[in-house]
Simulated scan of single mutants.
Amino acid sequence: MKRNHKTFGISDIEWFRRSIEEAHRDPVGMWQMIKAGRDGFGLDGLFLEEFVRDFIVEMIKGGAFPVIGNKASPFGWSPVPKYGGDPEEIADALIKDWKSSKTDPDVDGVWFAAQSVWK
């Protein structure tokens, strides 16, 4: 389903593409994905979940990995392998965690970054 940003008018696919580019320079938080879907694209409920799932899948296909902040790591980030390796599997696991927590993730949650950012 094609969706357009309420303010900028760009499609969700273009938003994902730009975020993938950003993840090759600086991590993109899951909290930012949810905020973009809810506030930028005006989504809620299952439509928001679908948006976030698509966003996660596209990020992973674009070379980003789930990471968390880690002060002991040389670059401040560590990969989170517990969610699996397949983009859809990772997205499903992250959505499940988000929904079961009954709260949105925050800056201490999962982010997405290319290896060049954290390795």
Rank of each mutant, 00 (worst) to 15 (best):
K2D: 08
K2W: 03
K2Y: 00
K2A: 08
R3I: 01
R3D: 00
R3M: 09
R3F: 04
N4L: 15
N4A: 12
H5G: 04
H5C: 08
K6C: 09
T7H: 12
F8M: 12
F8E: 11
F8K: 14
G9R: 03
G9Q: 05
G9S: 04
I10Y: 11
I10T: 09
I10W: 09
I10Q: 07
I10P: 00
S11W: 01
S11A: 10
S11E: 05
S11I: 05
S11M: 02
D12Y: 01
I13Y: 07
I13Q: 14
I13K: 13
I13S: 13
I13W: 05
I13L: 14
E14Q: 13
E14A: 12
E14K: 10
E14F: 03
E14G: 02
E14W: 03
W15V: 00
W15Q: 11
W15S: 10
R17Q: 11
R17N: 11
R17W: 00
R17C: 02
R17Y: 03
R18P: 02
R18D: 01
R18Y: 00
R18L: 06
R18C: 03
R18E: 03
S19V: 01
S19M: 11
I20V: 15
I20E: 01
I20H: 01
I20F: 00
I20Q: 03
I20Y: 00
E21R: 12
E21L: 14
E21C: 09
E21M: 13
E21P: 07
E22N: 12
E22F: 06
E22K: 15
A23T: 01
H24L: 06
R25G: 00
R25H: 13
R25K: 15
R25V: 07
R25F: 09
R25W: 07
D26Q: 15
D26F: 14
D26H: 15
D26R: 15
P27Q: 00
P27W: 01
V28M: 04
V28Q: 04
M30Q: 15
W31T: 06
W31Y: 15
W31A: 11
W31R: 11
Q32C: 10
Q32R: 13
M33D: 01
M33V: 03
M33F: 12
M33W: 07
M33H: 11
I34V: 14
I34T: 04
K35P: 03
K35D: 14
A36Y: 03
A36D: 10
A36S: 15
A36R: 11
G37Q: 08
G37H: 07
G37E: 07
G37Y: 07
R38W: 08
R38G: 07
D39T: 11
D39E: 14
D39K: 14
D39H: 11
G40A: 02
G40I: 04
G40M: 04
G40H: 06
G40R: 02
F41W: 07
F41R: 04
F41H: 06
L43T: 05
L43F: 09
L43G: 04
L43N: 07
L46Q: 14
L46M: 13
F47P: 09
F47D: 14
F47M: 13
F47T: 10
L48N: 03
L48E: 09
L48R: 05
L48F: 10
L48V: 10
L48M: 08
E49K: 15
E50T: 14
E50Q: 15
F51M: 01
F51Q: 01
F51W: 02
F51I: 00
V52W: 04
R53H: 15
R53Q: 12
R53C: 10
D54C: 14
